[in-house]
Each structure stands twice: as C-alpha cells, then as structure tokens.
Design a protein around this nucleic acid. Sequence first.
DNA 1: AGCACGCCGACT
DNA 2: GTCGGCGTGCTC
Length: 804
Amino acid sequence: MNIARVIVDVPAKQTDRAFDYKIPSHLEGVILPGMRVVVPFGPRKIQGFVTALQAESDFQQLKSISEPMDLNPVLNQELLTLGEWLTEKTLCYKISAFQAMLPAALKAKYEKKLVMAKNADRKLLPERVSALFQKTEEILWDDAVKSGALPLLQKEASNGNIEIIYQVKERVKKKKVKQVFAAADPNKLADYLQQLPGNATKQKEVLEYFLHEEGPVDQKELFSLFGITSSTIKGLMQKGLLGQRDVEIYRNPFGDREFERTEPLFLTDGQRKAIIPILNSIENNRHETFLLYGVTGSGKTEVYLQSIQRVLENGKEAIVLVPEISLTPQMVKRFKGRFGNQVAVMHSGLSAGEKYDEWRKIQRKEVKVVVGARSAIFAPFENLGIIIIDEEHETSYKQEENPRYHARDVAIERAGNHKCPVVLGSATPSLESFARAHKGVYHLLTLENRMNNQALPSVDIIDMREELREGNRSMFSRKLLEKIKDRLGKKEQIVLFLNKRGHSSFVMCRDCGYVINCPHCDISLTYHRYNQQMKCHYCGYEAPVPNACPECESEHIRYFGTGTQKVEEELAKILPEAKVIRMDVDTTSRKGAHEKLLDQFQDGHADILLGTQMIAKGLDFPNITLVGVLSADTMLHLPDFRSSEKTFQLLTQVSGRAGRHELEGEVIIQTYTPEHYSIELAGEQDYDKFYEREMMVRKIHRYPPFYYISLVTVSHEELMKAVSVTEKITQYIQSKLSAGSIVLGPVASPIPRINNRYRYQCLIKYKREPELGLALKKVLDNYQQDIATGGLSVSIDLNPYILM
DNA sequence: AGCACGCCGACT
DNA sequence: GTCGGCGTGCTC
C-alpha cells in the first residue's frame, strides 16, 4: 500500500479525478487517506488530498509525494465519502467539495519564485541579473515581473542558471505564545542572584520571581509585570537560568467571558410531547428527520438543548446550525451556558484563524457540540448523535457558490451515515419541509402554544395608500407614530424594521424620469447619505450624486424609496427626544459591533432599534412592546416565486419580537398592498392558512414543492454569445427531458447585466428526471473550453434559492 | 489552473 | 528566414 490516490488542487474538468503518487519509503504509514499532501504536478508543486491508499497503479511513471501537510487526516472516511456525494449532487469538482468541508485556513496558497541554481556561476550571469540577486537569495515571481527583467531571467532559467520554484504555503499559522520557565533548580537561581551586580536590577527582579514561581509563564506577562524587554530574558537564557518555548494556543473569540451556567428547564406538556420521539430516535440509533414546528416563543431551543444533553450522555456529538450566528449572540449564550466549554462556535464573524481554531477543537475531540452557520454542517465529528437546524426555512442555508449545496440536504445525508436524527425547527417552515412532513417523509412535531401561554402580539395592518389619500406623506402612519410616542412616554422599547439599507433606493430626475443606473450593471444605484455617494450593491461601483440630470440637465433630482439611513434622519426630525440605534450592514460590519449595539439596546441606552433583516431573528428583550414594519412589500415584488413565502416568514418573525415576556406586545405593519394574502395572513399569524394558499399558487405555477427546479445561468461580456449559448443549452436540455417537464428560456436574467457581463438563463421544472444531472454535466463538459479560455461562465444550480 | 508544444502572420 | 500570437492537450 505505498501508492496514494490524490485529488489535486486544480479545479478544472480534466483534473477532476485522482492522480496516483508513490509514497516515499520514509513516509510509509505516515501518509493516510484524508490528509493534505504536497505533490509535484507538471512543473509545479501543489496541494492535494489523499483519498485512498493502494498497492499498485496502472500508471507507469509515478512521481512521489513531496511531503505531508498534516500530522493527522483533516478529512475522515465519512467526510471523504460525503465529498463524493456532494460532487454528484451539486456537479462541482471533487477538490471544491473537499475545500468546502474545511475551514478556509487549510486552503493552500502558492508562491512562485526564482532562485539561483546551486551550480550557477554568479560571474557568468548578466550584470542586471546578478544585481537582482545581490541582496536576496530568492525573488518572488511578481517582483520579477515588476522589475521588467523577466525575459532575461527566463533566459537564464533555460540556461540552467536560475531555478523556478513553486511552493505550497499554509494560509494560517497555528497561534503560538512564547513562554519562559526556570531552566535551573531554585538553589542555582539563588546563587546567581547573589552574584549579580547591583545595577542589574531587572534581572534580579525576574530571578526572584522565578524563585517562587517555577513557571512556565507567558513572556508577555513578564514584560508587563517588570517592564522589561526580551533582552533581559535573553541574558538570563544565555546563562542557562531560564528557558523559552513556543506553546500552541487557541485564539479565543469570546475572550475570557464566563457564560453563566444554566440548568435544564422544566418542560411544558407540549415540549415533552415533542421531545419524546426525538429521544427515542437517539436511543435507538435511528435516522429520522423531524420537523419541529412551533410559534416563536414556544420553547424550541429548550427541546434542542435537552435532546443534545441526551446525546452527550450517550457519548456522542451534536451539530447545531443557526442562520448566521453572529446575528444571535443570545443563542451562543444559551448553548455555552448549558454545555460550557464543550461547545465550539463557528460563524462568519470570526477571523480565518479563529475559525480554524474552533475547527481544531472539534478535530481533536475537545468539544462535543458545534453551534454554527451553514458550513458547520461539515464539522469533523465521528460519532454524531443529532443534527439540529434551527430556523430551517432560512435561505442562508443554501450556498450560492460552488458547491451549491443546501445544508439541510447535507444534514440528512450525514445523519443517515451516523444513524441519528435530524431536527428541523421553525415557526414558519419552508413549504418544501412542511409538505414533506405532511406526506410523512418527515416526522412532524408541533408546539402549539407559547411558553407561559402568552398571547401572540396583536397585529395591525395599515394601508399606506389610505394615509397618502388623507394627506400623510411621511413614512410613518399616524397610528404608528402615535404608538411610538406612547411607548416613549412609558419608557418601553420599540423595534422598527425596514428591509432596505442605505438611504434611498434610487435616484431619479423629476423632469424626465431618468433613473441613474450603474454603468456596469443593469440596476439602479442606491444613494448613501453619509458620503454623498451612489453605490451599486452588486459590483460595488460608487459615484458622486450629479448636480444635474445627465439626460436633460434638469436640476430637479430626487431620491426615491426609503432606506434605514433616511428613516434615522426622519426620526431625529420628528422625535428628537428618542434615542435610536440603527443596525444594518453598514453599522455592523466592524467586528463585534453587532453585539455591542444589541447590548446597548438591551441595557436601555436607546428607545428605538431600527434595522434591516438582521434584527428579525433571535432578539429576545422583555421591554420591547412595539414592533413596526415600515414597508412590508419591499420583498413582495421581487421576481422570485418564493417572495410571498419570504414576506410571510419575515413579517411573522419580526412580529415575534414583541411581547415575549410579561408586557404585552403590539405590531404595526405598514403596506401598500394590504390585500395580499401573505401580508394579510402574517397579520393573522396563521401559518397553516398561508401554507394552504401558497401551496395552491405553487401547484398552479408548477413550482416547488410540486416540481423540482434547476437553473442554468450563462454569462458573457458579449450579449450575443450569452444568448446563443443559452439557446443551445436550452435546446439540448429540452431534447433530453420527458414529456411532463418544462424548460423556460432562454430569458434574460432578472438582473440582465452585472459587472459588464450579460446574463441569460434557462429554468427547468420537473417531477422526475433521473438523467438530468448527467445531461447538465454534459453541458458543462461541452462548454469547458469556452469556460476555461473564452470568458464564458455557465453556472448550474440543481435547487436554486435565488433566481437572479 | 498553468505550462509546453505547435502551427500561422509581421517583422529584423 | 525568425519572433511571437494563442489554440490544444497534458499534468500521476
């Protein structure tokens, strides 16, 4: 078994297979499946994953593995197999699947550089070249290009005087601290202390310290304790009195914060009824998918916690997925509070190094529970006892880049491997999941009531057209304003929700109707007040606001549509006494800002929390008694068959922020389309009725869950190329499908141009097409050349969540 | 993805 | 005649 099958780090069709390598004798038994290795590939050296070992190979001229990159495999057998599965399910390359399962820190970087060949005679090199090597041993390739001496260098390379070296570099280092310890016994230290000259005060202090403390101590601590620098330590080290060593440590994103320990709560009847089948499944090692359906505040989290507790008691591990966890620090508190340092947390707010450290805690079996966003589903546990997906309807569980997987699918696949339950929890389940629960594919568990049987908040829907008709042109209806004033007076807190950041959604000339668009994308620019700029949310293009209309030179330029920034200004004008905290991507991008703002709000430093999507989830503050949705229809008119579902879910969720404790809550929803069923039913908080209505719509229009959909998006700088390729693909797919299936296209994508690339697409709806995956793979193969070199991009999503 | 190899146009 | 354009095919 001295041959390794290796998947190399070259995401391309032709290299999407294993290459065999010899394992050099000194590495036999060291190299194992699931390890990263450095291998020679053509003229360069690259990273690869060993997928298997075998005794022989069909290939005759095997090269040898250069070196291992890990001491222990980073992928276990289950994850290696899962990678294969992911490849088939999402049509991605094997290497992309493996990389998606690991923290980004483990993805290799490459360095290309030039060094003088060992036997090269410096005197024979052209002067320009030897000058370059005067100060340094090696020249980075990029620097060589910049220096302009590349042709010369290449010539010398072909003469054999210069070597081109390819190097694989680790992205993130393990974090280490220097520690100092006493290297001699106390008697000897005391002896030396006597001999030290009187002016060596610093050294004396340090030695005295080590007489009582044998260490090791962090070097940094010594520095601050005695006000010394490394030279003092060095001196003592040279005398053999002290020693120094590097110790690997974990970065600690939560600082030294203590989480208050909590005990299991007494379950309500409803909770107990719901948890029994889950515990059963855990005890019997049975794979089963549960849909835990319970209104906000019905105590789903406690059911998760106690299920996990049972799993831990059985010596197994648990994965908990939450949507973008940095958004719900309260959730982290609950898990860390119950399970203490057995919990690793992985979310997008952590740095690459911090994520890597959390991942290593799992790999080294130092934790038993991981709470994290989508990618935590690949946590390298080997003994999974349960997988929980909270807020299962959230679209962030779908990855929108390759591999385009849905965490729910991965969870069910992994749970199948481990023979353990999956629990999907939501107050507003996705239609797909609820339909499956009805069909008996998932086991439906319902939590009927809120804990303590609080009433759901009362919801008022305000018709903003009516307000307009009666002369109220502001963004606040009279009723909302009145309620806000009321709460301000009572010192109760208010949450205002608006699903749009920035200031205004578009800038238009009032005289000619010209809307200022992004020059690279077919989409209007958003006005941001703080820097007086217009910004494209798709490509990042920024431009100052023009003084006159570029079309008709009129100076009547107006801002339309309302964003959070504008609301903030407006509030300051009409309610100057109210303290407002604004939360959106623009105010929370800095690390920790999110939690800080929330803490401020919780501690009562503000009356109004104004924000986008991100405040819809997880907030649980007792003093919030009013929730206002400023414009419920912002998402409703998006070109997406899920827009009703998303609107309903969002409104229901935001409403759930009010009155979660003793004080009763009230919700006001402002809208221009109060008659739309998703708004009306969100007002009644009637998910079941919404489900029925929406299922009818989906059935008529042949959308999920009645049909599966797949989306092919083609983009190219030239419009004609994009159109013609999409046309050919559409025809080909059409020819491969059975009678009941539908192909829509080619049509321009809802955003027809992004970053100067034209985008066309083709949507496939089907009930059963076992061959579709294969056909789509053929499409990719067929256009491989154009994709690789012709600037064409073809992306295929076998279960798209964003149709743009 | 890189890179080498190889076959046609515009140049010393 | 050669230098260099990028189309084609290979990498264990």
